[in-house]
């Protein structure tokens, strides 16, 4: 079976005052129909840029897709026209963002905003679109949806707003739903509700989900497969169980060990020393080398490639050599 969404060797650059900076460097990942891919990493590692590239939303200039391909259902998106991308957003791919208050328009009712998306992509009149919007609000678990559809975003709680975003995103039955840190702004009990809702939506609509998060706990509960990113590259790519139980890359292992997990009473947390290097200062070698306890000479000279060295694909010279 071929993948629903395939990203191959994607390279995205941004013009900055430090010169041209490579934000994504040969990023490859894929999502199969109906599964959830978790993309995990620290701020600035390129998670959101990957998502925006798929949606054709990289601000250009200063950004541009400098190479590689993104294929959705076999269709190349990197060379698609703006009109085609506009038609694609909604029925093919949809996205929900971190802060629902800033992604909703404050001067229109939520019902109108959902209906607008429906009317853009389906040949229905306003009355029918509004009816569909109410049905969608009901579907995402908003109580008394007829009344709520007439509310403005500021009248809803954070969790309700994120439900509205999800209703809007699934209104055109997308094949891929990208959720970019959908619960970061929400409380933990509401986060649990949104996660459960996303899983339900996936079951009912068969939509593939790309969940972008920095939380390995969220990955564990939501993802079938995981791509771990660091400084604009994918450094480990495998099933969620493989990454969580047998993390290969020292960074992936660090991300899991440094969580003060419930039900684990470590006296001292494992920590990853230092910080992510700024993208314009990346050298020849592995971007993680300076923070890595297993650094060798080769790591500072040569970028490791994502290759299968034993258990599952990982980009690390140390793992590679241990398997030789």
């Amino acid at each position: 079976m071929s993948a629903l969404l395939e990203i191959e060797d994607l390279r995205v650059t941004f013009r900055t005052r430090y010169g041209e900076v490579t934000a994504l460097d040969s990023v490859s990942m894929h999502v199969n129909e109906g599964e959830t891919l978790g993309v995990v990493g620290e701020s600035g590692c390129g998670k959101s840029i990957t998502a925006l590239s798929v949606m054709g939303l990289i601000p250009s200039p200063p950004g541009k897709i400098a190479g590689g391909s993104i294929r959705l259902n076999g269709e190349e998106l990197t060379t698609a026209s703006p009109a085609r991308l506009r038609a694609m957003r909604g029925p093919d791919a949809a996205m929900i963002f971190q802060e629902p208050m800033t992604s909703l328009n404050p001067v229109f009712t939520v019902g109108d905003q959902i209906a607008e998306a429906i009317m853009l992509h389906q040949k229905v009149d306003k009355a029918q679109a509004l009816k569909d919007a109410v049905a969608l609000l009901d579907r995402v678990g908003i109580p008394s949806p007829e009344t709520r559809a007439k509310d403005y975003p500021h009248q809803l709680s954070g969790g309700m707003r994120q439900r509205v975003m999800i209703a809007m995103a699934v209104s055109c039955r997308p094949k891929v739903l990208i959720a970019d840190e959908p619960t970061t702004a929400l409380d933990v009990t509401v986060q649990a509700q949104i996660f459960d809702l996303l899983n339900e939506i996936q079951r009912d609509f068969g939509v593939a989900i790309i969940l972008i998060t920095h939380d390995m706990g969220a990955i564990s509960e939501m993802a079938d497969r995981v791509a771990v990113m660091y400084a604009g590259r994918v450094i480990e790519d495998a099933s969620a169980d493989d990454v969580l139980d047998y993390p290969q890359h020292p960074y992936a292992r660090g991300l899991i060990d440094c969580i003060p997990a419930l039900g684990r009473d470590d006296h001292r947390l494992a920590e990853i020393p230092g910080v992510v290097p700024p993208l314009h200062l990346l050298g020849q070698g592995c971007a993680f080398a300076d923070r890595c306890a297993f650094k060798q000479d080769r790591c500072t000279r040569e970028k490791p490639l994502l290759g299968s060295h034993g258990h599952h694909p990982v980009a690390c010279h140390g793992i590679e050599e241990a398997r030789l």
């Binding site: 969220a218 079938d224 997990a261």
Partner: peptide, 15 residues
């Protein structure tokens, strides 16, 4: 109890 069960946990797996 609800707070504890809502917190994302490595012990709960989708698989």
């Amino acid at each position: 109890q609800a707070l504890l069960s809502a917190a994302p946990s490595l012990a709960r797996r989708k698989s």
